[in-house]
Structure formats: C-alpha cells, structure tokens
Design a protein around this nucleic acid. Sequence first.
DNA 1: CGGCACCTTGAGTATCCTCAAGAGAGGTGG
DNA 2: CCACCTCTCTTGAGGATACTCAAGGTGCCG
Lengths: 220, 220
Amino acid sequence: MNVFPALASQIADRAPPLAPPESEGIRLIGVTTHMTRDQEVFGEGEPADHVYRVVRGAVRGFRILSDGRRQIYDFYLPGDIFGIERGAEHRITAEALTDTILVVARRSALGHGSDGATAWRLWDLAMVELHRSHDHALSLGRRSAGERVADFLVDMAKRIGDGEHAELPMSRHDIADYLGLTIETVSRTLTQLQISGLIELAGCRSIHLRRPTALAELCA
Amino acid sequence: MNVFPALASQIADRAPPLAPPESEGIRLIGVTTHMTRDQEVFGEGEPADHVYRVVRGAVRGFRILSDGRRQIYDFYLPGDIFGIERGAEHRITAEALTDTILVVARRSALGHGSDGATAWRLWDLAMVELHRSHDHALSLGRRSAGERVADFLVDMAKRIGDGEHAELPMSRHDIADYLGLTIETVSRTLTQLQISGLIELAGCRSIHLRRPTALAELCA
DNA sequence: CGGCACCTTGAGTATCCTCAAGAGAGGTGG
DNA sequence: CCACCTCTCTTGAGGATACTCAAGGTGCCG
C-alpha cells in the first residue's frame, strides 16, 4: 500500500496477527482406526460428519473428472488434519496411500458457533491450506515438468524427512496426478535429475537429494 | 466413510454446519478510495495491515516467478473481500484491473482473538477461497485450453452478469495468466468457440454465451 | 520360481508455445 | 471532426514440451 500515503497515515496501524497465540493446533480426540492401501476414507458428496488426523501413513485428497482424469490436491502426512468442510458434504475424496493409522473425531468435536478459540484455529488451518493450494496452482499453471518435480521433491523431503532424504509413500501415478503430468514424464524427469547428479534414487520410493540447494534453485 | 460401519455407528452424528447462522458476511467499515488501472493495492512482502472490499471495478491477485512468469490466483469483483492474511505480510500482490473503488479497513477492525463470531466468518471466507483455489488447480492441472477457457467464461458470466452475458474487466493477458496459458492460445480458443456458435464476442471484452449449457458441458 | 504390478525407456504425435506480422479499438492532438 | 498513434487483440507459421502408445525391465509377493 505505497500508493496513497495520505490515506495510509490516516488509517495506519500495525495489527498483531489475528489469531490468538494459543492457536497453534487443533486438539482432536477420537477413535483410532486403521486403513489399508487405496482404501477410501471418505468420498466426494458424502456427509462430512467426521474429521481426521493422520497418525502414521499418508492420504491423498483428490477429485476426478467425468472422463477419469484425476487431480490430487494434497497429500496428508502424519500430524496433518483433513476432512474439515464448510458445508454438509465432502467436496473431495480421500484415500489411504499405504497402510495408514488415523484418528477419527466427530465433526461436532471441533466446537460450535460460540467457540471462538476453535474458530481461530480452524481459520489458521484453512489459511495454511490456502497457501499450499496457491503454491500448487503456481506450479500447475506456470512451471515446466522439471520445475514441478524438483519443487515436489524439495517439499516432500522437508515434510517427510530431514530435508535431504525422503521415503515417498506415493506411486509415480500419484505424483503425476498431483503435478498435472503423466507417469512417463515424471519418470523421465526423475532419471534426468539423477543423471544430472542432483538426486539419487535407491529403489523408486527412496530419494536422496544430493544437491538440495541446486534443486531448490531449479524451482524458479 | 462407508468402509467401517462398526466405527461409523460408534461415532456417528449429524453435526450442523460449523459456522453460526449469522456468519453470512464480514462487515467492513473503512475509508473509500479510488484506484486507477494497473495501480498496486499492495505488494507481496508488504505489511498486511489493511483489508479491502471491492465496491466497483476489479482486482487481480497474483505472484510472479523470478523470470517474470505470472500466475493470477483470483480476480476480486464487487462485493469480494481480499487482503486478509494469516501472517504479518502479504503473500501475493494485488493490482486494480480497471478504475476501481475499494473500501480499506484496518486489519484490526476484523476483531481479535476473543471475537468468536468474526473468527467463524473469516473461516468461512477462507474456506470459500480454498474451494475456488481447488477448482482452479483442477483446471490448471488436468484441463485442456478449450476446457479452461469455457470454464472461465461460465464462471465469469455467473459472477459478473446474469449467467449469459459478461463484460470482462480483464485483458487477454490477465485471462492467460489466470488460466496458465498464453494470450495467443486464449485468443485462438475464443475465436474457435465463436466459430462453433457457443459464444458471441461484441468487442473483445463483451461476451455473450449463446449456448451456456453446451459450454458448461465442455468443462468436463 | 513365476506372476503381477509398477516403473522405465523409446518412438511418434498433439497440444500449446514462440516468434512475427497484421488488424482493430481507443485516445489524443491538429 | 478526422487523422494518427499506441496498445491490444488476432492470425499465421514453425517449433518445443509433454502426451500417447508400446515394449521391456524391475521388484515384490505368493
């Protein structure tokens, strides 16, 4: 807002972050359950009566077009909460990537209209999701296959591992449907990155970022 | 959650929508100001001390990669609120598309940690934005140029006009950077739609959907 | 050891992009 | 009021990226 200084001084203030300090997470008390590979947690259109937290394993959240094309919006990893909806129905489908342990809670356990602290935590969670979705849209809209894959690997190494290693819980097909590419393009790009010495593949699920900085610079 | 009926009955409930009924909008009291075409409302990285509502005109929200590639995340139209951030800084840049009138309010005017009703309204707003971002990601990742343009036109006609007409406030360049295409591809696709009899262009900003249903079906 | 799923690699192709030129629209000044 | 200028949009030709189709390789499980 550098454009109208008069106005700026008129209404200037330096507001503290909106969310209260104790909003660092959502408490989720519920039933622990076990899902097997490819099992559906909930489907698009089903009643959104429950919310979920990943304890172990991983989940994909996605939608499918009428002709079968699939777009994965996000992978939910241990610690992540998912399945919270604004309306009465789920807008996406969620499936376990591998054997996965979840905590399932009633949606009503999140609180009600009168519960301000929970509302701020939910807002915070939604904003983080929105940030991820925006970053994702930037990749899908404006990045090449190489940039998308590099970005994906850096992100996964950060979320799953120590920033340099990652045991991917998802297949090439899942990666492709997350990045808006085909499995062949993902595969070719990974081998190119390996040939360039940027990464090392030990089996197709285990990835070592040999030059994380160079990889991050690839993301443009 | 059709997969473990025992669990379902164990924790089944039919929770009402989380947000309280009176959360249908954010009240925004502030200073009315005027922006001219291409003027920056706020830039990425600047302090997010204010929030905005569009009164007249339109705004683009976007980010730019180091080499100049731009991804527009959304267009803000009359009635829309934008500029609300989770942290202290704006994560995107906002610019007026045309001559635009905004209401500018202090960020602190949105309320504080103790204000539950506002928190629910903000959560609701964030979730709507997230839905839009997901739909957008689906287009960017999995749809052809033709499908993206058709989807864009249907969406714009709904938001701006009566569902069949739209006076677009944005240039081909803006449309291209929203849809992850080039201006040439957008232009070619529009003329194809016109040749097919699905739309009618009266000047390049005025669009009439001649067969809205057929157009919507194109979106897959 | 065999079968099956997943992954990799290759060849050919389609879609969309790049580069380039021409057409249309809107604004300014003579 | 018209002419000109500029910016935007359209159209065309050629090319690059990623897709499709197809075959072969790898690893996991029974």
